[in-house]
Design a protein around this nucleic acid. Structure first.
Ligand SMILES: [Zn+2]
Ligand SMILES: [Zn+2]
Ligand SMILES: [Zn+2]
Ligand SMILES: [Zn+2]
Lengths: 162, 162
DNA sequence: TAAAAAGATGTTATGTTATAACATTAGCCT
DNA sequence: AGGCTAATGTTATAACATAACATCTTTTTA
């Protein structure tokens, strides 16, 4: 499995496979860690994985209401907090939105490529760049706790179509 | 002038000089570009430069009210939009906040080091890392329009104090 | 097993961030 | 004056996020 350098989500790919992998991995990780992937959390994760587009919290709220009429903002934000804490999703800071993580389990720093046209987000782990960043931080004597590296632009597929 | 690799803002530095440089540079650039650094825009820029901490829009609103009682959110957001469009400030995506740019005039991509302890933000332009990023984007066949590279952690000064 | 503790969710309210839409004003050109 | 553009004023509301406290459920442990 060489997911670390996959292409920007190909429209023809087997997305059911993405979803299935994400959900089973999540279940296994939570079990192994002794934390609960409760029904609410599972549903939110599933909704996030409906596509490779970043999803907003209130979109999730709207989409979960048919399943869970009593859902409120806190319902969603708590589930999101949990999923982030377990590394199952990422927050896209520059969009106030969320995407499923394709590298769950391994702790990692990621580069997010956000297409302005199709809204899909590709996650990459560019070793060389991250090494260079680490070096820069060292020379700045700055101790990093978290990193947001987000690039907005146009993906290959959308560029080809135009 | 070697601002491109300055340290995380030293508490003892001559900040009046920072402010003076920023405001005069802004005035010159706007004149040269035929755009107007109006009183409101100038005031907002000045307020942003009160420190090297990132400032929130509604903080600016509160701080400008003594000077301009009629100020409303749109007043601030319009000024911020203008200052960003002219490259005089940066938006810090992961904080929903704003900082003065120390490299105004040159278009540039920047790395922001955000100290959780003192809230100060250091702007750097790490050539090697940015080259590596450009290469990665090329190999992903992704055309970048804008970049947000934001690191949260603890700066040297704060680490030393602890 | 009963009590206590910890974790998860329900519920209400509110705080924070940002924009839409339309009116008005100021400066400039003809 | 009349018409244009850029900037600002003004009102309203949309969009994003958390606080605080109540309740329920699961696990721990006496
Ligand atoms: Zn997929
Ligand atoms: Zn695209
Ligand atoms: Zn300074
Ligand atoms: Zn600091």
């Amino acid at each position: 499995m060489t997911l670390s350098q996959t292409q920007h989500p190909d429209p023809a790919h087997d997305h059911d496979h993405c979803v299935h992998t994400a959900l089973t991995t999540a279940a296994h990780l939570c079990t192994a860690r002794g934390v609960q992937l409760t029904p609410i959390r599972h549903q939110v994760l599933e909704l996030i994985w409906e596509s490779h587009k970043a999803v907003k919290a209130y979109e999730l709220l709207d989409r979960i209401k048919p399943l869970k009429a009593a859902a409120k903002p806190a319902t969603i934000y708590r589930a999101l907090d949990f999923l982030i804490s377990q590394g199952l999703i990422h927050r896209v800071e520059s969009l106030n939105a969320f995407i499923g993580c394709r590298c769950s389990g391994r702790s990692h720093e990621q580069l997010l490529l956000i297409c302005k046209h199709c809204q899909q987000v590709e996650e990459r782990t560019p070793e060389i760049m991250l090494k260079a960043l680490a070096k820069e931080l060292q020379s700045a004597q700055f101790v990093a706790h978290s990193k947001a590296i987000e690039i907005h632009g146009i993906c290959k597929q959308c560029a080809d179509k135009a």
